[in-house]
């Protein structure tokens, strides 16, 4: 694993998804919610990109927007492009998107119970996906279903085809969801907090499973989470979001060893460590994230920032490179010196 970390597993690969200046808003009775405010990022083939941030930072909404899975209205994609293999997903019709969602890009969610139909057997739910998207006949679909369930580590899959979702535990249901997502060999898997509802030992099982399958079938993964621990173990690159903006992106090692945005640095300081003796109080970030009901002006983190300067309150910094290795941050200040960059 370590060697892959150093080499940068995906250096030579082509870009799979290229998102440019994506903006998503929700028009609610209370006013406009500025959920995603012009974010640009890309994912390469076979790469794992982690999207990290606290609740309400826009990490899920941005991915749902790309797949046109947000409800319009109240939602609105106010601008931007999402180029998947060069084609803009935001311009696709609903029926075109349905084909893409099943076959090219798959998604798994935090709560597998609400994404599985409780009155259909597991076998039927998986084979149906295969029959509609791949045009398989019943026999072929069944054979592939058993193969998929075996792949996600469900023992004795042939006998469990007739079981219903409630007969599976939370971790097992998430495995079934992964099997459904993998049914059509997608090139990109978007995992939206897939382990948040699970216990730590089950989380370890799922993380191991996704990593193994990713390497087996050479699939790109976007892993949305708030847990910086899980990210360290699974990601190639990390993107940190705050109040609808990307504030820092870097390779995983660079981000953890040399965080350059005050928010990232504070988040890492707020984490206790299971592998070390306690040596300091946790660093807490005062205050709370800004209201998304106000059109953003200035740096969104400026109200809670320790190294804030006057300029932060009026100009929102753009994502610009620091050092090498595609390490980008959106900050006016050098956090080591506290001086403007």
């Amino acid at each position: 694993m370590l060697s892959t970390l150093e080499a940068g597993r995906c250096e030579s690969m082509g870009t799979l998804l290229d998102v440019k200046d994506l903006k998503t808003r929700f028009h609610t009775p209370e006013g406009t919610v500025y959920a995603v405010n012009g974010i640009s990022f890309h994912v390469k083939e076979g790469e794992t990109l982690a999207v990290v941030g606290e609740s309400g930072c826009g990490k899920s909404v941005s991915m749902l927007s790309i797949l046109q899975l947000i409800l319009v209205p109240p939602g609105e994609i106010a601008g931007g492009q999402a180029l998947y293999r060069g084609v803009d997903l935001l311009k696709k019709s609903e029926s075109e998107m349905e084909a893409i969602r099943g076959q090219e890009v798959a998604m798994i969610f935090q709560d597998p119970m609400t994404s599985l139909n409780p009155v259909l057997s597991i076998g039927r739910q998986i084979s149906e996906t295969l029959r509609t998207h791949k045009g398989m006949d019943q026999k072929e679909a069944n054979r592939r279903t058993i193969e998929l369930l075996e792949m996600v580590g469900i023992s004795d899959p042939a006998h469990r085809l007739g079981d219903y979702p409630h007969q599976f535990s939370g971790g097992m249901r998430q495995r079934v969801m992964i099997a459904i997502a993998l049914a059509c060999n997608p090139s990109l898997l978007i995992a939206d907090e897939p382990t948040t509802a699970l216990d730590v030992t089950i989380q370890a099982q799922i993380v191991e499973l996704v990593t193994k399958i990713r390497d087996q079938v050479h699939m790109a993964v976007i892993w949305i989470t708030h847990d910086l621990g899980v990210v360290a173990g699974i990601a190639d690159r990390v993107m940190v979001m705050y109040a609808g903006f990307i504030v820092e992106e870097a390779s995983v090692v660079e981000l953890y060893e040399n965080p350059c945005h005050p928010y990232t640095s504070a988040l890492l300081g707020a984490l206790p460590r299971v592998d070390r003796r306690r040596d300091h109080r946790l660093k807490s970030i005062p205050g709370a994230p800004p209201s998304l009901l106000v059109e953003p002006h200035g740096c969104p983190f400026s109200a809670r920032c320790e190294v804030v300067i006057d300029r932060c309150k009026t100009d929102n910094p753009l994502l610009t490179p620091v050092g090498q290795d595609h390490h980008n941050i959106a900050c006016w200040v050098d956090i080591n010196t506290g001086a403007p960059r």
């Binding site: 730590v200 910086l228 360290a232 460590r273």
Partner: peptide, 14 residues
């Protein structure tokens, strides 16, 4: 249980 807890340090965690 302890071995399953992720560590926020990519080198160490892996």
């Amino acid at each position: 249980l302890l071995s399953a807890v992720p560590v926020p340090d990519p080198r160490k965690d892996r």
